[in-house]
Amino acid sequence: MIEAGQRLGDRFLYLRTPHLRGDDVAEVQRMLSTLGFSVGRIDGIWGPLTATALADFQTNMSLGGDGVCGGRTLQTLQQLVRPLGDASVVAHITERQRLESAGGQLIGRRIAVGEAGGLEPVTASVRREIGRDGAEVLTVHHPDWSTQAAQVNRFGAAVYIGFEVKSTAPSVSYFQGRHFVSRAGQKLAADIADRLEPMFGPIATNGMGLPMLRESAMPAVLCRFERIDALLERNREVADIVAQSTRDLLADQPAA
């Protein structure tokens, strides 16, 4: 709610720690992306990629290149974007480029697998299964999802798969914000959910702004299960499904 209350033009936007967040940040990211300046994902977080994209835009428009989005920069962005409509092409291309792979091979690819506590056997099984294909796998065990996101970003993973047990209906979630939907994450979530349903019953797929999904730089999904005993009992089968869905995601990328 706090982020939604940040209206475009009410404050200066610039790189600082902690990063500025809000709907106004997402709107500037959308405009920069529409104009061809890569901000990575449109996630409403003013990080280094967004700061660099804004400075590049300012330099190209003879606006000084100081990386601060104020009134003059904002006015220029709006004037240029208005005739183009609502498009976020560069953000989707950037996500696709992270997944480019020949024939869906996992050899040499970096894959991250994480959990927030108590599911080490599951992540270990996934690591072994994906590792057999020659991928370099990072397993992350931390109760704070933002910390996990920072770790997998430093690792440079192409894909992240997270696991959690929660007393709600089973689901597989992907990142969806106000101006951006992770298409690769959505595809991976749907594929995993379809393959898990014969074992666990109906599994929903949801676009969400959870910290792990939002703050990770790569396509990411979070698999939530209702019962830990049922998950641990089938963890090897779950690992096989996750590995196969990851292979399929890397193999089925549309042409740019």
Rank of each mutant, 00 (worst) to 15 (best):
T147G: 10
H179S: 10
G36Y: 07
T17W: 12
T139F: 00
G22Y: 06
G85I: 08
G40I: 05
L77N: 09
G104E: 06
I93L: 14
G131L: 07
Q253F: 02
S245W: 06
A190M: 05
A55S: 14
P254F: 11
G177E: 06
T246Y: 08
N60D: 14
E136W: 05
I192S: 10
S33R: 05
G134F: 09
N235H: 15
G162P: 04
S88P: 03
P18K: 01
V81Q: 15
L84V: 08
R183G: 09
D194R: 15
R224F: 05
S33K: 05
V90T: 15
S33P: 08
F175A: 04
F163H: 04
A204T: 11
D86Q: 13
L210G: 04
A55R: 14
F163G: 00
G64R: 04
L119G: 00
L106P: 07
F175G: 02
I42Q: 08
A184R: 00
R183I: 00
D229C: 00
E115K: 02
V68G: 01
V68W: 04
G47W: 01
V137T: 06
L8H: 02
Q78D: 05
T94F: 12
Q97L: 13
A255L: 15
L99H: 07
E136P: 02
V39K: 00
I45L: 09
I45N: 01
P219A: 02
D43I: 04
P254V: 12
A149Y: 04
R227I: 01
A157W: 09
L77Y: 07
L49Q: 03
S146A: 14
C223P: 00
A150S: 12
A4C: 10
H141K: 11
A26V: 09
H92A: 06
A251T: 02
A150F: 07
A116N: 04
Q75V: 02
R224V: 15
M208V: 10
L8F: 09
R128D: 15
V159T: 06
G104R: 05
G209K: 12
T59P: 03
R236N: 15
E27Q: 14
N206Q: 14
I93T: 07
T168L: 08
G44C: 10
R132F: 10
T123D: 08
V140Y: 03
R41V: 00
A150E: 12
M199G: 05
E197C: 06
V89K: 14
H92M: 04
W46Q: 01
Q186K: 10
R82H: 10
A204C: 02
Q176I: 03
L188V: 03
I111Q: 02
R247W: 11
G134Y: 09
V113W: 06
V90A: 12
D144T: 07
A189Q: 03
L54M: 12
H19L: 00
R214T: 06
T73F: 04
R98P: 01
H19Y: 14
E3D: 15
T123S: 13
R128M: 09
E100I: 13
D194M: 11
L249V: 09
R98S: 08
I228V: 13
Q148I: 11
Q58R: 06
G9C: 08
P121C: 11
L196A: 05
